[in-house]
């Protein structure tokens, strides 16, 4: 039974990894009368970038986003995906009467994306929302109120009457927003004309606090033995750092070189134990390597 589960898991892993390496996206953009041809192409490119980043984000996160949050994130990325794009190549533009089809090869900068997802609260709020108080100013436009509500949902925040954390928004002169985020022992203030920038500036600080990450994500020690060369250890170090969706903050802490072989240990924060176990099982034993994950939290 256990073997069968492992086999099914392995097949799923292969399927999953196939998705992870796919850098090609395809976008259909229907013709709009008020848009020029160049504008249509530009919008198709923006949607292509958003789609590529969204796909990588979904592979990276340890669980599924709900539909509403996924759609909000996609809309957000249409205007904010570029910082995450490492390189891209337009494979083809196919013009038709009904619109155009764009094929784009996109390489996403995974480290930047992981940091971005962390700042936006995805890792912290994927399983359970973050409860917070939100105070909005009187006279706020309906459009701004809707945008704020979308940002609240996108960040996985559940509005409640609590003392901390508390986010207060104020309207400053010349259309500038002023925000204040207060937690028990700290306070952050920011000003910006763009509400989204202001929001993620403040909440990014909240979601990347080390104590919060330590609380949310398990840290363990991974020990691997059976190598014959330190080069192989360093290469595996690179490989495991690329397993963004299952481990974070990977740190090689020890290399043990014996006459019969080389072993090494890593401190890792595990986002998904089952999937990490599956990936290790798929990679290590066929290379003559064995591994052990400590039960204890190491930091």
């Amino acid at each position: 039974m256990r073997n069968r589960l492992f086999f099914i898991g392995f097949i799923l892993l292969l399927f999953q990894s196939g998705l992870a390496v796919a850098g090609e996206v395809r976008v259909f953009k229907p013709m709009e009368q008020e848009l020029s041809h160049m504008q249509l192409r530009s919008q198709a490119m923006a949607e292509g970038f958003a789609q590529a980043v969204l796909e990588d984000a979904q592979n990276m996160l340890p669980g599924d986003m709900d539909e509403v949050r996924t759609e909000l994130f996609k809309q957000y990325l249409i205007y904010h995906a570029k910082p995450y794009i490492q390189e891209y190549k337009v494979l083809s533009f196919q013009d038709m009467d009904a619109g155009l089809i764009l094929r784009l090869d996109v390489k996403v900068n995974k480290r930047t994306l992981r940091d971005g997802l962390k700042r936006m609260g995805f890792f912290a709020t994927l399983k359970a929302p973050q409860v917070a108080a939100i105070v909005v100013p009187e006279g706020m436009s309906e459009e701004a109120a809707v945008q704020l509500q979308d940002l609240v949902t996108l960040s996985g925040i559940q509005v409640a009457d609590v003392a901390f954390p508390s986010f207060t928004l104020e309207l400053a002169p010349e259309g500038v927003y002023k925000g204040r985020l207060v937690i028990k022992d700290r306070e952050w203030v920011a000003m910006n004309k763009d509400l989204a920038v202001l929001w993620f500036d403040l909440w990014g600080r909240f979601f990347t606090r080390s104590e919060l990450m330590a609380f949310r994500v398990k840290a363990q020690t991974l020990s691997v033995s059976g190598w014959f060369s330190p080069d192989a250890v360093l290469e595996f170090d690179r490989i495991i750092r690329g397993w963004d969706s299952v481990v974070q903050e990977v740190q090689l802490v020890e290399m043990d070189m014996q006459s019969t072989g080389v072993g090494a240990s890593w401190n890792v924060r595990i986002l998904n134990s089952d999937r990490l176990n599956m990936m290790l099982q798929a990679f290590l034993p066929q290379r003559g390597l064995s591994f052990q994950l400590s039960e204890d939290v190491v930091k």
Binding site: W227, F228, S229, D231, A232, L234, E235, F236, R238, I239, Q286, R287, G288
Partner: peptide, 15 residues
């Protein structure tokens, strides 16, 4: 070159 060497040192292996 280091990465290629590392990759070879991590190649599938049968005792």
């Amino acid at each position: 070159a280091v990465r290629v060497r590392g990759s070879i040192q991590n190649s599938p292996f049968k005792r």
